[in-house]
């Protein structure tokens, strides 16, 4: 490694070690969670799955975390975990089934999504980034590289460039949907008061159920201004958990 030097080599090795350690912790916690869940110790299982998800977020881990939270009768935690599983892998069918089950049982609504947000749920959030980036790169390459390499611009070059540009434009709403959807959260506490102003003693507009979806509009101090399907107001920051964390 003459180019990087000894300091760079050491840094890369340390980073690799840290990543490897996190992976090991995640896998170990996942296995421990499964074991605890199967013997009916749902508190331990939830803790283990939470540790695993913190070290190594994965759709399967969040699915199991949701199951454990549901067994602990923590509906908000379960719904949040399953939503996160779908956030990482929209094709996680079990998470969809569990969310339908939970919302049917707890009589909760699913988040209201705009059309571009619905489109963003077709693929994982990061996939849309790569689609946009690769299509844009492809468009640029088809426009620039033939000339640089003294090649003749043929029709397929232009076709691929047009296709890439089209894909890039079509992926923009989905990327925007990911951004707006990332401000979706869920109420964590039962009968959370929705207040008129961002103060602890403010007049209460209504009470929100645990697991009810809400959209974060803005933040002021320790309070969040949120909008639900039927009301809007302020809640304390610890009473709303965003789907992608904060």
């Amino acid at each position: 490694m003459p180019i990087l030097g000894s300091a760079g080599t050491t840094a890369i090795l340390l980073l690799a070690l840290v990543v490897r350690a996190e992976v090991a912790v995640g896998e170990h916690s996942f296995s421990a969670g499964v074991t605890a869940y199967e013997r009916g110790d749902f508190d331990t299982a939830a803790r283990a799955f939470h540790d695993s998800a913190s070290a190594q977020p994965a759709a399967g881990t969040f699915l199991n975390l949701g199951n454990a939270e549901w067994k602990r009768e923590r509906k908000a935690g379960a719904i949040l975990a399953w939503e996160r599983a779908l956030w990482l892998n929209p094709r996680e069918g079990n998470a969809k089934t569990n969310l339908a089950f939970a919302r049917s049982t707890a009589q909760l609504e699913s988040p209201q999504l705009a059309w571009h947000e619905v489109a963003s749920t077709w693929l994982p959030a990061d996939a849309w980034v790569w689609i946009a980036a690769v299509s844009l790169w492809l468009t640029g390459a088809m426009l620039v590289l033939p000339g640089i390499f003294r090649g003749r611009k043929s029709s397929w070059h232009q076709g691929v460039a047009a296709l890439g540009l089209g894909v890039f434009i079509l992926s923009l709403p989905a990327n925007f949907g990911v951004i707006t959807r990332s401000r979706t959260g869920f109420i964590t506490a039962m009968e959370t008061p929705l207040r008129l102003t961002p103060t602890a003693n403010a007049e209460m507009v209504t009470k929100l159920s645990a697991g009810e979806p809400a959209r974060l509009i803005r933040t002021r101090g320790n309070f969040l201004f949120i909008r639900t399907s039927h009301a809007e107001g302020w809640v304390a920051s610890e009473e709303l958990e965003l789907i992608c964390g904060r």
């Binding site: 995640g26 996942f30 695993s52 977020p57 994965a58 399967g60 990482l88 959030a125 980034v129 925007f176």
Partner: peptide, 19 residues
């Protein structure tokens, strides 16, 4: 309620989207 997942599946570095 579905059964447990046997593997964590594809992992991500963070939940915060790159967008």
């Amino acid at each position: 309620l579905s059964p447990l997942a046997t593997t964590p599946g594809r992992t991500a570095s963070t939940l915060i989207p790159m967008q």
